[in-house]
Design a protein around this nucleic acid. Structure first.
Ligand SMILES: [Zn+2]
Ligand SMILES: [Zn+2]
Ligand SMILES: [Zn+2]
Ligand SMILES: [Zn+2]
Lengths: 125, 125
DNA sequence: AATGTTAATGCAACTTGGTTGCAAAAGTAA
DNA sequence: TTACTTTTGCAACCAAGTTGCATTAACATT
């Protein structure tokens, strides 16, 4: 079930997602420590995801990241894009590119998760 | 540090990886419950990965899966292939295909993790 | 504005996957 | 066998995330 009431918790959380950068639940819990309980953070993130406001994905160490959706709704999600994690500064964000997956014999593909890792523009060497 | 002694624990664990199917640490701990302590399972898996015998990856719920490597060594790993998880029966395995990633502006790509989900050959509808 | 209804919240306790420290057991070489 | 060192089991721990429940806060109705 998604968001029903426009509460302060929702506003505080949404305010953190101004840029297109992805944020981990842990990071958000830290940032909002004085304002929100961690249970609330998890619950509101969940609801925002239900509503198509945020989408989430895992990085290679099992941490869940959340980012703003572009054009999702409660009933339809379009978050099949890849994500990029900088191995140097740790920043994670959505990639606005399309990855073509070849046909796979004997298998029906429903969805795919692609995490690309490397150096971001600020950490290039 | 990898495996130094050929112990029973190593044999028991390797025996579980006869097929190319991936196995989760949790699954292995369950299967080997009467023979090995869970700490040992985690430690041996770690070492086998170090040695290039197994590789691991995460699924979308944060569970780590292990699978046999094809031609990796202690110093060089070649596990950039995608993995497939059947959303119906839960089975996970390695895909022997190549996914082409386009150039990404301003970013240097080091490595990528691709998890494809859908229906396996036995769960097709 | 006061009231009633119910969603949302805070808190503590819990669950789960995984890790750590250390003493005991098992490989290995001599 | 002995000595040496890795590996193991156990218990205790840890961190991320979840649950149950009493309290608080939205918000619709009067
Ligand atoms: Zn960076
Ligand atoms: Zn995204
Ligand atoms: Zn299946
Ligand atoms: Zn694989």
């Amino acid at each position: 079930m998604g968001i029903i009431r426009k509460t302060q918790s929702v506003e505080f959380l949404l305010a953190e997602f101004q840029s297109t950068e992805a944020l981990s639940a842990i990071e958000l819990i830290g940032r909002l420590d004085s304002k929100l309980n961690k249970t609330t953070v998890y619950r509101v993130l969940d609801k925002l995801e239900d509503d198509g406001v945020l989408h989430s994905f895992l990085d290679n160490s099992g941490i869940r990241w959340y980012a703003k959706c572009k054009s999702c709704t409660k009933s339809k999600h379009f978050d099949g894009h890849p994500h990029f994690q900088c191995l140097s500064c740790g920043k994670v964000d959505c990639l606005n590119i399309n990855v073509y997956l070849p046909e796979i014999p004997n298998r029906q593909v429903t969805v795919s998760q692609i995490l690309i890792q490397g150096n971001c523009e600020f950490c290039a060497n």
